[in-house]
Design a protein around this nucleic acid. Structure first.
Lengths: 104, 104
DNA sequence: CGCCGTGTCAATTAATGATTGACAAAAGTC
DNA sequence: GACTTTTGTCAATCATTAATTGACACGGCG
């Protein structure tokens, strides 16, 4: 059994917005509107991310990375895991029809 | 000096399409049109990826991952590095105006 | 010559990331 | 208690873009 590279877990990975909402914002004790202003995005855009209905784009990851001081990597990886998990399910049957070119 | 997490190098990371064009396709000895057919995308879409003018989306990464047998991770990471590098330059001055919340 | 596959360009469509505007509910102030 | 401000959410609009289809020049081959 190959335990390496667990391409995607059974459970949906947490959306980066959740981390932002549950951990980061409370720690900074900032109202959302003020956070949005500092990040240079609209109030609504940040709300959507917090609600998990908008993705953390590479640009937003850069903003968050600078703002939180931890760099864009974490936000980007979280969003990527999230996207991949969903795409994998959306394309499940399509992928089944794609041939593999590395020794069946 | 902090040598860890080199968020982005000076040089533009190679586009995943380049790897596909230079290494994968030659190894498989397949014409592009046939590869596109097997991947389930249009001929033109694949050409654009090979030319570096179209991104490898999460869905395309899944297709390539299945097709090549190495999983979506590599393609996704390459594209992400590529996107990040460009976004970092596009947002350079915007980022300069975003305050950092972790000890100046 | 006529045919087929290749590589590229333009136009169209569908999806989506982000902004603005509007509005009800909660918090704060006089 | 009435008034103002802030908050959280919804809808509409705009701009971008990923992907498709259609069209066309080039090169080998029957």
């Amino acid at each position: 059994m190959n335990m390496q590279s667990p391409v995607s877990a059974k459970r949906c990975p947490t959306h980066p917005g959740e981390l932002l909402k549950e951990d980061v914002l409370p720690a900074l004790r900032l109202p959302v509107a003020e956070a949005a202003r500092q990040l240079g995005v609209s109030r609504q855009t940040l709300y959507k991310i917090l609600g998990g209905t908008a993705p953390v784009t590479p640009e937003m990851a850069l903003r968050l990375g600078k703002w939180c001081g931890n760099g864009p990597g974490l936000w980007l990886r979280m969003q990527q895991a999230f996207d991949l998990w969903h795409a994998e399910r959306a394309l499940a049957d399509t992928l089944a029809g794609i041939p593999s070119h590395v020794m069946g």
